[in-house]
Simulated assay, not measured.
Amino acid sequence: MRILLASVIAATALMAGCVSVSDLEKSGPALQSASSKTPKDYAKCLAPAWQDINEDASSTETEYGYRLLLKIDMVGVPVMAKVSTQGTGSLVKVYVRNGTWNKWVEAARRCL
């Protein structure tokens, strides 16, 4: 019984540190900017830049454009970019778990 209780407590503690996509969106974007690039062209720039930082970063086409994210087991999603069509270019929103992820935001700025 003690082992089961200890396992439940440990799992709860680990889950408390997880960040979901909706958690990131609630905190607001760390970067929001327009780009003259199409969402596809912007994603083609940002995906390799983020993969240079962490190879687990991925890019997915969505109904609004592209979503790029880094998903880490036991942490959840600490970084995400949403790239949507705006006029002939893109609207870029980058969400980060906390202020220590400046390298992700800088990579996104370089692709604008």
Rank of each mutant, 00 (worst) to 15 (best):
M1I: 10
M1R: 14
R2F: 14
S7E: 10
V8A: 15
T12K: 13
L14M: 14
A16K: 10
A16L: 11
G17Y: 12
G17M: 14
V19K: 10
S20R: 14
S22G: 09
S22T: 12
L24K: 00
L24I: 02
K26N: 10
S27G: 15
G28S: 13
P29V: 06
P29N: 11
A30K: 14
A34E: 14
S36G: 12
Y42Q: 06
L46K: 04
A47F: 06
A49R: 02
Q51S: 11
Q51G: 10
I53F: 06
E55F: 07
A57G: 08
S58I: 09
S59L: 04
T62G: 05
T62P: 03
Y64H: 12
G65W: 03
G65Y: 05
Y66F: 05
L69P: 04
K71M: 02
I72V: 09
D73N: 15
D73P: 15
M74L: 14
M74S: 08
M74H: 09
M80S: 01
M80Y: 01
G87I: 04
T88A: 15
G89L: 14
L91N: 08
L91F: 06
V92L: 09
K93A: 12
V94Y: 03
Y95S: 10
V96C: 01
V96L: 03
R97M: 06
N98V: 13
N98H: 13
G99R: 05
N102H: 01
W104G: 02
E106K: 13
A107P: 03
R109D: 05
L112V: 02
